[in-house]
Simulated assay, not measured.
Amino acid sequence: MRGLHGWMALRPRWQAMLDARMEPDCIFRQPAWYGARLQHLCDSPDELAFVCAQRGDRLEAVLPLTVDQRPFGAGLMTLREARTPVHAHQLISDLALAPDMDADDLWPELFDWLQGSVAAREIGWDLLRLDGVIAGSGLDRAARSERRPAECSMPLRESAWLDCSGTPEQALAPVSRSHHGNVRRLMRRAQSRGALRFEVVESGPALEAALEQFLQLEASGWKAETGSAIARSDSLSGFYRALARQFADQRTCRIHLLRLDGQAIAAQFALLGARTLHLVKIAYLESEADLAPGHLIMREAIESACADARIDRLSFVTHPPWAHLWKPHIAPVSQHLLFHRSLRGWAIGQLRRWRPAGPAVLPRR
């Protein structure tokens, strides 16, 4: 299935497949994420293709892909590339699976289908680039099960996360005494200026109002000056509003607000899935930068996550430079290149091995 119309037709079955898990699945495996992207971030309504695995009428897996072409080999060839849809606002991708399916078992059949004549008509490709694949995920296990000479795997970046399955004291135990002391000092400084209050907003008109406050905070400071703020872009603001609306239907969108005398000075846009709360975007009021409001709200978010029985992990999604202060666990995020089992795919794989291209550089989040 392809594009917005294909997504609309597939969505009920896709969601029903995930709902059989009895709890929300990873946000990057959910149809809501791709619907928001198709509606607001794609240049073409057919930009995304959805490869489905099913037995009879039962849907067992969905793999979203983008397909494009570009010159290759000094312009002597055209490289047809199918790629997991990673971009600046989606740095992780995965294979959506039915709860009783295992990626290792399903992948050989799915990969064989991708190389067949039917797939060639739908999404002809020479190189399958599995990008944004987090260590231990279903897609990572599937890609590593392929063993052919032309295969390449490389780490691209890292994803940081905190274990919030226990108490706040357990989650924060690895943090240095100096950082604990600094956060307490900043907290006292903030409280000397007014009442400090942390809020978790999940639904209804309050979520819509909190989203607007988040967008205002995200547009403060250097992002306003460079024009890169979400609120400055109709497509980006539409994307985040669509995410909030669609995930709110399952009560899995949260906006954290830290207020000082009623004014929001920090905010986090978070989505819950697979017992992980993903901090998709963070923002703070730069006029209050001397309070380090990003660290103050992080301290509150950790306590809130530890108190929620639905959450085991708090994910930073990426590994931002300041995250090391919270001593997170680190998961590698890799790229796997799989070449078509054809003479053309073999030739491109050989050229790629001898003249590797550098990994794509994604824009700043």
Results as ranks from 00 to 15, higher is better:
Leu4Gly: 09
Arg13Asn: 11
Pro24His: 05
Arg29Gln: 14
Ala32Ile: 00
Trp33Pro: 02
Gly35Trp: 01
Glu47Leu: 10
Arg58Phe: 02
Ala61Pro: 08
Thr78Ser: 13
His87Thr: 01
Gln90Met: 14
Asp94Gly: 11
Asp102Leu: 01
Ala103Pro: 08
Asp105Gly: 07
Leu106Trp: 03
Ala119Leu: 05
Ile134Val: 15
Pro149Cys: 00
Ser153Lys: 03
Leu156Thr: 08
Gly166Gln: 11
Leu172Gly: 06
Pro174Arg: 00
Arg177Tyr: 09
His179Asp: 03
Arg185His: 12
Met187Trp: 09
Gln191Ser: 08
Ser192Gly: 15
Ala195Leu: 12
Glu199Trp: 07
Glu202Ser: 14
Gly204Lys: 06
Ala206Leu: 10
Gln213Thr: 12
Ala219Met: 00
Trp222Val: 02
Ser228Asn: 07
Arg232Cys: 08
Ser233Pro: 07
Ser237Lys: 10
Gly238Ser: 04
Ala242Leu: 06
Ala264Gly: 09
Gln268Thr: 09
Leu279Ser: 12
Val280Thr: 08
Lys281Leu: 05
Lys281Ser: 07
Ala283Lys: 02
Pro293Glu: 03
His295Met: 14
Glu300Trp: 03
Ala301Thr: 15
Glu303Thr: 14
Ala305Lys: 00
Asp312Met: 03
Thr318Met: 06
Ala331Cys: 08
Pro332Met: 04
Gln335Glu: 15
Leu338Met: 06
Arg341Pro: 05
Arg341Val: 01
Gly345Val: 01
Trp346Phe: 10
Ile348Ala: 05
Gly349Leu: 01
Trp354Val: 14
Trp354Cys: 12
Arg355Trp: 15
Pro359Asp: 11
Ala360Glu: 15
Arg364Met: 09
Arg365Phe: 13
Arg365Ile: 13
